[in-house]
Design a protein around this nucleic acid. Structure first.
Lengths: 360, 360
DNA sequence: ATGGTTTATGACACCGATGTCATGACATCG
DNA sequence: CGATGTCATGACATCGGTGTCATAAACCAT
C-alpha cells in the first residue's frame, strides 16, 4: 500500500502538506492541492487508520455486542430484531465517520469479556450492548467507565439505555380499537417474567380508562409461559377461556406476531373467520409474518431500526461530550400501529359465538 | 490507557520482554512472565491494535458488506438471512482472532465505494460481499486484487463465492416426498429472473428421474413474478391451475415459506385441509414462519449460518494463502429438509378434489 | 578449560500518520 | 520603509507496539 510519503514524493511536497490536504486543518495553495490529489489518485492512496489512531488517540470505531444474553435454555435465535438495529445504528454512525465493529456471542454470555477485550484492543470509542428482547441485564464490571448505551435492555445502576415504548404501543392499538367501536378487547399477554408485560398491561388499562371502559380481568390472560414445552396447550386454553366468557371479545390483542400466527390457526379450527367473526392484532410487526398472513395482520411496529438509530445518536453524544446535562438516561422509542385487514370496525363484526358454543 | 512501557516499568523489564510475554514468540523466564502478568492486571493494560497493525501490517479486521444490491425497486429489507450469516461468519473469524467490520448499504449500491474506502482505511485483510438472495452481481473495479468472497451471489469473472445448493435442496425434498409415496408433486416456482430457479427445477427433475417418474409440465407453475403488484393474483391463479389439472397433485412445493404461508390461506379458503387433503412444503425454513404455522410447515433449510461460516473459512484461507491449489472457486452449501406436520405419507392423504370441483 | 549452543533479555529503529514549531515569501499598515 | 501579520510549507518528534540484532549468562560436549 502507498503511504503518505509516497504521495508526498510524487507530488513534490512534504508529508505534512499531504496531511493538510487530507484533513483541511490549514490553508493549502490551490495548485499544491491539485498536485496532491493527482498523486493520491495515481497511487491509489488510502490513509492508514491505524497510524492516524496512534497519533490522534481516536480510532473511529464503535462496538456492538449482540446476542449477549441467553436467559432461557430454549434460546431462540430469531435474530430478527438485530439486523434492523444494526442497520439503524450503522446509518447514524456512518454519518459521523464511525465504523461499526460487531461481535455476536451466539447466546453465550461468558464470551462477553473476551469480545470486550477485543473491542478495547481496537480502542472503540463506545459500545452498544443489545439484548434479544426487553429485559434487565447485569453488566460485567470491567465495562464501567466506558461510553456505553444499552439497547432493548436496562440495568439497576442507571446505565443509559434505549427501550421500546411498550406502554405507548399497547395504548395506541387499544385506543385505536376503541375508536373503531370495540369495547370488549381480549388480551393474550406475554409470560410473567417478561419485562415488557407490566408496561403493555398498563397501556391496555390506560386506553380503556381514557374512554371510560371498565377493566375486565376475564379479558386478560397469559398467552404464553416461560416453559416452552407447554406453550401450545396454554395458548389453546387461554383462547378457549377468552371465548367462553359471558360477553366475549370482538377483538383479541396478541403479545406478539408469532402468537397471533398460531391464533389464526386456532380460530379457524373453531370455525371463526378473521375479521368477519372476530378481529385480531399482533405486536412486533414482523412484516414477514404480518403482511403475508391471510388476511394480513394488524400489528404494533416494534421500531428496532429507530431504536438502533436513537442508541447510536445517544452514544455519539456521550462520546463527544455533547449530551444535554439533564438528558434522561432512559429513552423510549415508539412505533406506529400498522392497521391491516385482520381488524374491522365493531359494527361490521358478527360474533357467532352462540352457534359455536352449541356445537362444542 | 496504560501502554506497554508502563507495564514494562511496573514489571521492571524492557517493553520488548512484555511483548514477548504477550505474543509468546520467544522463551521468557517463568518469574519474569509472572511479574509481567501481574503488572498487566494491575494497570488494566490492553495492547493497542493500532500500534500492532502499524508494525506488523496486519489489522486483524475483516469487512462485510451487506444489503449491497437492490435490483428491485420494491426492495424488501427482510434482513433475515443476514443475521445468520453474520453469526456464522463471526464465529469462525473469532476463532482466528479476526474482528468483523460491518457496513450495510441499506439497499443503496452507490454507497459501496465509500464503505469500501472506510474498510481500506482500516486495512481489512479481506472482504465478504453478501447479497440478499442468490443472484449474479457486478463488482466495482476497485475491489480487484483484494481478498474477497461473495456470499449468496456470484459474478462473471469467477470471484470465489459461496452459494446455497438450490438443486440439492429441491432434490432432497422431492426425493423425500417420493419416498413417502407421493408421485404427483406440484411445484410453485420462483420468478424467472431469480438465479435459483433453474437449479431448483433441475433438482425437482432429477428427483423424479431417479424414481422413474415422468416430468409433467402441468405440475410446474411460477408462483410469483417480479412485478410485486400482481403477486397475489398470480399465486391464486397458479394454485387454481394446479388443482384443476386432471390428476392433481397430492403435495405442493412452494418456492419459499412466504409463498407457502399464503398458500395455507388460499387452500383453506377452498376448504382443503393440510395435510389431510393436500400436503405442502416450503423453502428457506424461516423457523419463525415454519414452526408456527398451523400445522407446522415442512421446509428446506436454507443454511445461512453455514454459508457464513463457510465463506469466512474460505476467506481466511485466501488471506493466509493456504487455499488448496485446486480449490473450487464456487462452493455449494446444503441444508437439511425439516419435515413437519404439513406433510404426511401419500396413503394417508385423501384428496377431495371431486367434491371441491362440483362446488365451484 | 574451551568453544559452541541455547536461553533470556535489552537497545534501537521503524511502521505511517499528525501536532508543534520554525521559516520564508508576501501583503498591509502607520 | 521598517514593523507586523498572514499564508504556505517543511523539519522533527511522537503515538505504542514489534522486528532485528546484540549480548550476557547458563548449559553442554569435547
Amino acid at each position: 500500500m502507498a503511504t503518505i510519503y509516497d504521495v508526498a514524493k510524487a507530488a513534490g511536497v512534504s508529508p505534512k502538506t499531504v496531511s493538510r490536504v487530507l484533513n483541511g486543518d490549514a490553508p493549502v495553495n490551490e495548485k499544491t492541492r491539485a498536485a496532491v490529489h493527482a498523486a493520491i489518485g495515481q497511487l491509489n492512496y488510502v490513509p492508514s487508520s491505524a497510524a492516524r489512531t496512534m497519533r490522534s488517540q481516536r480510532s473511529g470505531l464503535v462496538g456492538m455486542i449482540t446476542g449477549a444474553i441467553s436467559t432461557s435454555p430454549h434460546f431462540e435465535p430469531t435474530g430478527l430484531p438485530e439486523i434492523y438495529l444494526v442497520q439503524g445504528a450503522q446509518r447514524v454512525f456512518a454519518e459521523h465517520n464511525l465504523t461499526l465493529l460487531i461481535a455476536d456471542t451466539g447466546g453465550h454470555a461468558e464470551r462477553v469479556p473476551d469480545l470486550l477485550h477485543t473491542f478495547l484492543e481496537h480502542r472503540v470509542e463506545g459500545i452498544l450492548y443489545v439484548a434479544e428482547y426487553h429485559q434487565e441485564v447485569h453488566l460485567p464490571g470491567n465495562l464501567r467507565g466506558r461510553h456505553m448505551v444499552l439497547v432493548n435492555c436496562f440495568d439497576a445502576v442507571g446505565t443509559p439505555c434505549v427501550l421500546p415504548d411498550d406502554e405507548g404501543g399497547q395504548f395506541a392499538v387499544v385506543d385505536g380499537l376503541i375508536g373503531k367501536g370495540h369495547t370488549r378487547i381480549g388480551f393474550l399477554t406475554l409470560p410473567e417474567r417478561q419485562a415488557a408485560r407490566p408496561h403493555r398491561t398498563e397501556g391496555y388499562r390506560k386506553a380503556l380508562a381514557k374512554h371510560g371502559i371498565a377493566f375486565d380481568e376475564d379479558l386478560v390472560i397469559a398467552g404464553a409461559i416461560s416453559d416452552v414445552a407447554h406453550e401450545y396447550d396454554l395458548l389453546w386454553d387461554a383462547l378457549d377461556r377468552l371465548l367462553r366468557i359471558p360477553d366475549p371479545p370482538t377483538v383479541i390483542c396478541c403479545a406478539n406476531d408469532k402468537m397471533a400466527m398460531r391464533v389464526y390457526g386456532l380460530l379457524r379450527e373453531r370455525g371463526l373467520e378473521i375479521p368477519k367473526d372476530i378481529c385480531l392484532v399482533g405486536y412486533d410487526d414482523y412484516r414477514m409474518i404480518s403482511e403475508h398472513m391471510h388476511p394480513p395482520l394488524s400489528s404494533v411496529d416494534l421500531p428496532y431500526g429507530a431504536m438502533g438509530a436513537r442508541a447510536a445518536a445517544k452514544l455519539i453524544r456521550l462520546i463527544s461530550g455533547t449530551s444535554k446535562p439533564n438528558e434522561p438516561s432512559r429513552e423510549l422509542v415508539s412505533g406506529p400501529v400498522a392497521w391491516r385487514e385482520s381488524v374491522r370496525p365493531r359494527d361490521r363484526v358478527v360474533t357467532p359465538f352462540q352457534t359455536w358454543r352449541r356445537e362444542t
